[in-house]
Amino acid sequence: MAGLELLSDEGYRVDGRRAGELRKVRARMGVFAQADGSAYIEQGNTKVLAVVYGPHEMRGSRSKALHDRALVNCQYSMATFSTGERKRRPHGDRKSSEMTLHLKQTFEAAILTQLYPRSQIDIYVQVLQADGGNYCASVNAATLATIDAGIPMRDYVCASSAGFIEDTPLADLNYVEEAAGGPQVALALLPKSDQIALLEMNSRLHEDHLDQVIEAAIKACKDIYTVLDQVVREHVHEVTTLLGE
């Protein structure tokens, strides 16, 4: 850790947050006209765009169609300029493929796919600037885009990361904290029903601390939910007022 103090004695983190505090979240729905649904989110300096197409007829290989529910097709990509060092492949490398798989799992848990047999739902996520919590920001953006597309979901999916540094669980890690190499948990939650859609952990963490860290992540997810819900409600209110039937 080379002298970098991730948590000061006064309880502040490198970017001046408290242990359980989130970064500033700004979000917008309906940023593209062409897509069925789209959204943009900023969590601190992490910036993510998500677009949803569908449900539509199977494109590409029709043999993949499921006769009783819709297929959720995800693609996670990072812009070449999103990281400190320029990326060579925006998608298709190991890390992105794994992320793609995680996104797919998360959204298959949340979307009511059985309503759309033999269809396909595409979720494309692109990270424009990576500053930690890429998976979490992607999930949050994709949730907003799915809601914008009018695709039925059981609940929102909110994701947040949590780490464990100097015996304190930290919520919503930024890049510096992630890079320090401590334990890190990414959690996707259906906040209303308290169900976990995805849970992933990197590096080692003592069993005794796991509960605390998950607790911190769940709390962060619920905080994210409050923000996302407000964005959705404002959007719905604005559009219904304009429609004003």
């Binding site: 039925p152 906040p191 719905v236 209110h237 007022t241 039937e245």
Partner: peptide, 16 residues
Amino acid sequence: SQGLARGSDKHLVAPG
């Protein structure tokens, strides 16, 4: 929408 005060009496919901 601020100029138009219609549609505010509707019951609006979000998923969940």
